[in-house]
Design a protein around this nucleic acid. Structure first.
Lengths: 141, 141
DNA sequence: CGGGATCCTGCATGATACTG
DNA sequence: CAGTATCATGCAGGATCCCG
């Protein structure tokens, strides 16, 4: 079977990516890992997230049945989020991804550096001294 | 309770997502799963991918050290791609994600339908005074 | 506190044309 | 065949204001 057999269009990966491939989802799930937590608490834990993005991510996760939202209608509203059993099934898989990263990401980073060195040759011999190639913003930690 | 928090900014998931979270990467890796394969063959297998996106994805994967590119300089050029050992380490993890999807994605889909149905009801507000209105008097952070 | 509603911007994706 | 280069665009993501 070699001709066009594979429906590589939607083969499972796509579904998972559909759920966790955006910027904050994994972080939010991770913050819920230890149990119920309030909105503000999540926001405090995830550095750099905006309320819009947090709310949007939470909504999406709630829609996907991965987290549950509990509102206590007091004067300062209390909204707490919890992983559903379905959401908890995701945790081990995310852990595995994390393990892969801690194990192999250094190699990836080295490969990138090596690649970038090898590709820094220009076909034109005129090269202006301005090289604004800010590849990516790196992070510490 | 371990209130160890933040630094959720870059906690491993981010690195993995950085690698495989784009639209075609997983599909391309999957197409290389069985061994060396040529450019046109990949393009033929992945439905809907454009040359630009395929090339871009291949370049990125090559840069990350996940695939290797071998050029045979003949009159019609022959370019073949192969998973590197590093790239192959990714396969089991992607398989697991696929398994999660085949196992739980139906539940996600059902949850979505339920959510979309329930989102058209009106919440009633029973306000109970549970805290002073000193919102500025927070001590949480 | 926990959002909703807007506006804006950059990047990812895509369509098309040209090349060796 | 296997790209490169250019242009167009849609949507994720971010900033800001407002509200119960």
């Amino acid at each position: 079977m070699k001709s066009r057999d594979i429906s590589l269009t939607v083969c499972g990966y796509t579904h998972v990516l559909e759920i966790i491939a955006n910027k904050w989802t994994a972080l939010v799930i991770y913050s819920l890992e230890n149990g119920t937590i309030r909105y503000g608490e999540i926001k405090g834990r995830i550095e750099g997230i905006s309320q819009k993005m947090l709310t949007q991510t939470l909504r999406q996760l709630e829609r996907d049945g991965l987290i549950s939202r509990k509102v206590t209608p007091s004067v300062p509203p209390i909204v707490a989020y919890t992983l559903t059993p379905l959401g908890e099934t995701l945790i081990p898989y995310m852990r595995m991804l994390k393990e892969w990263a801690s194990e192999h990401y250094p190699a990836v980073r080295k490969a990138r550096e090596a690649y970038d060195l090898g590709s820094s040759r220009k076909p034109e011999s005129h090269l202006i001294a301005a090289a604004p190639s800010e590849w990516e913003n790196m992070e510490s930690t």
